[in-house]
Simulated assay, not measured.
Amino acid sequence: MGVTTAEWIYVGFLILCMQIFVTLTDKTVCSDYLVSGLDGLDDAKLTSSSNFGNNPLEHGPTNARLYLPTVWSWVAGANDVNQYIQVEFPGETDITAILLQGRNNYPFFQFVKSYYVLYSIDGVVWTSVTSQSQTPILFPGNSDRNTVVKSALVPSITAVYLRINPRSWNDFVSLRFDVSGCYNIQEKYIASEHYEKTQMLAPVDLVQYPVLNGNTRSLLECGKMCHQKESCRAFTFDKNQTICRDVTVGFTAQYSANSALKQCYVHKGIFTSLGFREFPNRLALYKINEQSLDQVGAADLCCQYYSQLIKVTSQPQMSSLQNIITGNDILLQANNQLFVSGMYASPDWKYSDGGEVMDNTLWAPDHPDPSHGHCVMLTLTGLASVDCSESLFSICG
């Protein structure tokens, strides 16, 4: 949310003089890459029927991560149709697609050409993904080593465990893979830590929101009142009218054309539950959306997260985001261009909210160029113009 530490409104010791305590919050993870994205799974969650040469270090399932840059992959211990690689998710997961890739190792041309998908809730009883005629679907695999082939599961399936069972292959049963979908987990967070300053879309007239107090002396007092009300997770304070309002319901409202951005303060636990992370300097929050959408879809997704496409306003901030991208194989190899705030409004490039002009020093070489498109993406060399209809990952903040 692009907010400095000094702008955080702390509750707990500083306001309520009460003990800070730890509680659990639901966190939803949605990604085109559930196995190896930013919220990817631990190695222990990847298992297999066998490994070539009984050598898990070089041929075990932990080498099956998509875009893994080494020469290894998962290679089965036998070339037969009884082999599988398995992934365990943190809980029941809505699975929408499988992504498959061969082994990255010239001169060997090892890849899986077709496969079955099996899934389970308990890891004991397994069900095959079948067609309407109830026969197992033979999914198409690869025809080379490095091209990623994505197969949608329509309808999606719900599973805790998933297996890929190769049925035909080139040279050896060998693959890298990932899975698209969503799951919910519970994470610990500091329940009384602080509220985060942000903006939300809300009706221009806020009178529909309940008043916590009509004669509030300060922003800190308003924050204390919200914290003491169990259901309050967001508040706004009108210092001119000294009115403190509970705007929690605004986060689930359906917005209309008669809406505007309103400043409010939101309990940080909400952002934690939505997957926001702190920058290394701990001065702001960001969320990388690992779902390929056009710019309108990306902006709408940020809005659903009570945020907006992030404003890249400084070189240190941009460098931090670029370091995050280069630190993950999925982002670095295949998704290193991400929508951020920015739009061409001739003759200037401005942030998407129509505000200030963007800093010219942040652009990549040969950018901005309206002929490339009227939206803005972050790349490894700086900000760049891009066609708004492109499908890219995005960053909220």
Score class of each variant (00 low, 15 high):
Tyr106Phe: 09
Ala159His: 10
Arg245Leu: 10
Trp349Val: 00
Pro155Asp: 04
Thr272Cys: 12
Ile310Glu: 00
Glu230Cys: 08
Thr379Ser: 11
Lys27Asp: 08
Gln199Val: 03
Asn170Lys: 15
Lys350Asn: 00
Gly37His: 05
Thr62Tyr: 09
Asn336Ser: 12
Ser273Cys: 06
Asn323Glu: 07
Tyr189Lys: 08
Cys222Glu: 00
Asn55Gln: 02
Thr135Gln: 11
Asn104Val: 08
Cys244Pro: 12
Ser273Asn: 13
Lys287Ala: 00
Ala78Tyr: 02
Ala299Pro: 11
Thr62Val: 11
Val22Leu: 15
Gln254Asp: 15
Asp205Gly: 15
Gly275Gln: 14
Lys197Gly: 00
Arg217Lys: 15
Leu99Ala: 12
Asn281Met: 04
Gln19Leu: 13
Phe279Leu: 15
Gly275Met: 08
Ser192Leu: 01
Asp366Trp: 03
Gln19Glu: 13
Pro370Glu: 04
Val29Pro: 12
Asn258Pro: 14
Phe21Asp: 11
Thr242Pro: 14
Val386Cys: 01
Ala298Ile: 04
Ala152Cys: 09
Arg176Cys: 14
Thr326Met: 07
Thr236Gln: 13
Phe177Pro: 02
Phe21Pro: 10
Lys150Asp: 06
Ile270Asn: 04
Cys232Phe: 08
Glu290Tyr: 03
Ser156Thr: 14
Phe339Ala: 03
Gly373Glu: 08
Leu383His: 01
Pro210Arg: 12
Cys182Pro: 12
His367Ile: 00
Ile98Ala: 03
Ser391Tyr: 12
Asp122Gln: 02
Leu309Pro: 01
Cys396Thr: 02
Ser341Arg: 09
Val340Cys: 04
Thr361Asn: 12
Leu153Glu: 15
Cys396Val: 02
Gly275Cys: 09
Cys264Glu: 07
Ser391Pro: 15
Ala253Gln: 15
Pro136Glu: 09
Gln208Met: 15
Lys239Ala: 15
Lys224Ala: 06
Asn142Met: 04
Gln317Met: 11
Ala202Gln: 14
Ile98Lys: 09
Trp349Gln: 01
Gly91Met: 04
Ser231Val: 09
Gly275Leu: 05
Glu230His: 06
Leu175Thr: 02
Lys197Arg: 01
Cys388Met: 11
Gln333Trp: 01
Ile270Trp: 03
Val249Asp: 13
Ile164Met: 01
Glu92Lys: 12
Thr313His: 01
Asp246Lys: 13
Thr158Glu: 04
Thr147Pro: 12
Met225Cys: 00
Gly354Arg: 05
Asp178Arg: 12
Ser156His: 13
Pro107Thr: 02
Asn142Ile: 04
Lys188Ser: 05
Gln317Tyr: 05
Ala384Gly: 10
Ser120Ala: 13
Arg167Leu: 14
Gly181Tyr: 07
Ser36Val: 14
Val154Phe: 02
Asp32Glu: 15
Val117Tyr: 02
Gln208Val: 15
Val204Pro: 15
Asp246Gln: 12
Cys244Lys: 13
Ile325Arg: 01
Phe177Leu: 10
Ile324Trp: 04
Met377Leu: 08
Leu138Pro: 06
Asp32Trp: 13
Ser314Thr: 07
Phe89His: 01
Thr272Lys: 03
His59Ala: 07
Gln132Lys: 14
Val266Pro: 07
Gln19Arg: 14
Val124Leu: 06
Val296Cys: 05
Ile324Phe: 03
